[in-house]
């Protein structure tokens, strides 16, 4: 499918890392404990096993545990050194992991307040990440939709949301999407009045009755067509990706399509369902054994799903680069009907 536009996947990446630096992926999703770290570690491992040079970065300064998942015992140098301005070169913070091609920038538990980088430091950090010598840089985000988390998500080439088939996780996913979307829009708008309007719209119970991004666009259209164009263009490059984790039934698998459909029809936001990962006790065990399951047992069902997602990521052009290709028409390209999810091993028919 999309791979056909970049038949030479490898050379594409090579040019990329020379010309534009690594491709930046952020893995988030409002809720705590939905498997963000598990997914990040394993996608990184899968990409590394496929020959890509990968760096994973633990930007969850409050609940740092990526290093444990990768079998790195209490790291000596961490992101805290960068935040506290003891180290300016991110490259010096790279730690080897037991896997070839995979390096880590760790974080450590620490005092929450001290650990939050200042705004300027965050900008430096983001710039530094773009300069790392790698094909892929994956960021493991913390829970919640705080501005600092959103920024990592928004500046990445691909923002990936991990959702679990349960109400609170779905709710948090929408909260996160809304927050990310409005933050992005607010930054993209130039005029003070329009920015103000975006802020008003963020509150779902706002007095102007703006309920969705589309309503907001209508309001902006009526006042300022240049801003409306900016809005539409920014909206088009806002293309979050979804992974459904810990699925147990075919019903759960379909959640990704359903959420994408709701995002498209209700919010006017195009999302891309990257794939799903089944629930497996072995996944849990791999975490306590401190090894990514794709490395520990590459033939396990979970590993197959995770590798499939990693492959898809390699095939896909980065969400934001897609603007530079042939410009899509303005209609939300109707995606082919959700293929009846191929029931794969480990998932029962719901």
């Amino acid at each position: 499918m999309i791979s056909s536009t970049h038949p030479a996947g490898d050379s594409y990446d090579a040019t990329r890392s020379v010309a534009r630096g690594p491709r930046l992926l952020a893995v988030g999703g409002g809720k705590g404990g939905v498997g963000k770290t598990f997914v990040t570690a394993n996608l990184a491992a899968a990409l590394a096993r496929a020959g890509k040079r990968v760096v994973v970065v633990d930007v969850d300064l409050e609940g740092a545990n990526l290093h444990t998942c990768l079998g790195v015992a209490s790291p000596q140098k961490t992101l805290a050194d960068f935040v506290a301005e003891r180290e300016d070169d991110l490259g010096k913070l790279l730690i080897d992991t037991p896997l070839a091609n995979l390096k880590l920038i760790a974080a450590t538990h620490g005092n929450l307040a001290d650990a939050q980088p200042s705004h300027l430091r965050r900008v430096r950090l983001l710039r530094g990440l773009r300069q790392l010598d790698a094909d892929f840089v994956l960021l493991d985000l913390g829970a919640g939709a705080h501005a600092s988390v959103l920024d990592y998500f928004l500046v990445s080439d691909d923002g990936i949301l991990v959702v679990q088939p349960e109400p609170t996780s779905v709710e948090n996913t929408y909260t996160f999407l809304r927050a990310a979307f409005y933050r992005r829009m607010r930054l993209a708008m130039v005029g003070h009045g329009v920015r103000q309007l975006v802020t008003v719209a963020m509150d779902q119970r706002n007095e102007r009755g703006i309920k969705s991004p589309l309503d907001l666009l209508r309001e902006i259209e009526a006042t300022d067509t240049a801003e409306a164009h900016r809005f539409v263009e920014t909206m088009r490059v806002f293309r979050p990706r979804l992974i459904v984790n810990a699925v147990r039934t075919a019903e759960d698998v379909k959640l990704g399509f359903a959420v994408a459909s709701v995002c498209r029809k209700y919010f006017g936001i195009e999302t891309e369902y990257l794939g799903y990962v089944n629930y497996d006790d072995e996944a849990r065990r791999s975490v306590s054994m401190r090894r990514p399951i794709v490395d520990l047992r590459s033939d396990a069902d979970v590993s197959i799903y995770l590798q499939r997602i990693a492959r898809k990521l390699m095939e896909l052009s980065p969400a934001q680069a897609s603007v530079q290709g042939p410009a899509p028409t303005h209609t939300p390209a109707p995606t082919p009907p959700p293929a009846p999810a191929p029931l794969a091993p480990g998932i029962s028919r719901g």
């Binding site: 992005r184 164009h229 920014t234 603007v323």
Partner: peptide
Amino acid sequence: SARVARAAEAAVTRVFEEDT
């Protein structure tokens, strides 16, 4: 529109760095 999109993108990044 591709140009506008790129400009919008650049604007976003710039604003990020200056205005957040």
